[in-house]
């Protein structure tokens, strides 16, 4: 029973982290139909930023995630302004290839500047803190990240569903030309969506610095899982991303423990394939 609770908690905590990483991607993909291949590298940049803030200024990731979110907001917006905007409307694959190029640039830049070494912040406020719950051990850094994830996701959901900006985002996603005819500045909406997408992954990266080592490849698997989360949950759907991420976290955790650790990602991708075959728009797609 203890094992079951432990596996359940691990799955939920992992799932909530995946949800936060995937939320930004979901917006970008859902609203603009642009696949941001550099999403994992955005995560890596945020982790490096918060790592160096911790190393040089001694500010704990518990606070520096704010800097991660703000910085990545601008990185996202700049990416749209300088790269995506210029590649939209050209060859069908142009934005995808452009962001792929950006991902290579960011990864190799960090490899060159920071070497491939693994960097882990030590002496952080939450380092190594755990507590017992129903016979299971809960990691405080992961729990805090999960709570932040829920708060950020709720915030983004509120923004989209309850504010005029959010309605404009939804309108742009549904029909760009009609939205423009209604007086919506779709250009600014795109800019904002890329900024929010960047901010979400920036917050995730900042918080992850507490318990995960930073290195140039750290974003690779997270970005792959984020793509699966978005496609599974439905493009542009924040509740969909949350549900899909929890599903993936739980499948990964239960398969890893009760079947075999080596097949946990096989199970994740198998579920993704089945859902996409049955419902191509994802579980909660617009």
């Amino acid at each position: 029973m203890d094992n079951f609770v432990q596996v359940l908690i691990d799955g939920i905590l992992s799932g909530l982290l995946y949800a936060l990483v995937a939320a930004g991607l979901s917006l970008m993909w859902g609203v603009m139909d642009v696949i941001n291949f550099a999403h994992g590298e955005f995560l890596m940049v945020a982790m490096y930023l918060c790592y160096w803030i911790g190393e040089i200024l001694g500010i704990d990731p518990l606070f520096s995630w704010i800097a991660g979110g703000i910085f990545l907001f601008f990185v996202g917006a700049l990416t749209y302004k300088l790269i995506i905007k210029n590649s939209l409307g050209k060859a069908a694959m142009a934005p995808l290839l452009a962001t792929f190029g950006l991902s290579m640039l960011l990864k190799n830049f960090c490899m060159n500047r920071f070497t491939p070494n693994f960097r882990l912040l030590s002496g952080t406020i939450m380092e190594g803190k755990t507590f017992q719950f129903a016979g299971a051990i809960v990691s405080v850094p992961q729990l805090v990240t999960a709570i932040f994830s829920l708060v950020v996701l709720l915030g983004v959901y509120w923004l989209i569903k309850k504010t005029r900006v959010g309605w404009a985002i939804q309108a742009t996603a549904m029909d760009k030309e009609a939205a423009e005819l209604m007086g919506i500045d779709t250009e600014n909406i795109y800019l904002l969506v890329f900024g929010i997408g960047g901010a979400c992954v920036g917050v995730a990266g900042g918080l992850m610095t507490t318990y995960l080592a930073v290195h140039p490849e750290v974003g690779s698997l997270f970005s792959l899982i984020a793509f699966v989360v978005v496609a599974l949950g439905g493009f542009g759907s924040i509740p969909g991303a949350l549900f899909a991420a929890l599903l993936i976290g739980l499948v990964e955790s239960f398969t890893g423990f009760y079947v075999a650790a080596v097949v946990k990602y096989v199970a994740v991708f198998a579920i993704y394939l089945v859902v996409i075959l049955i419902r191509p728009k994802g579980l909660f797609g617009w």
């Binding site: 890893g256 650790a261 080596v262 946990k264």
Partner: peptide
């Protein structure tokens, strides 16, 4: 056994 480069090794260690 586990896949290298994993995001976590929770179930493996469990």
């Amino acid at each position: 056994p586990f896949n290298n480069g994993a995001t976590n090794l929770n179930s493996e260690v469990q």
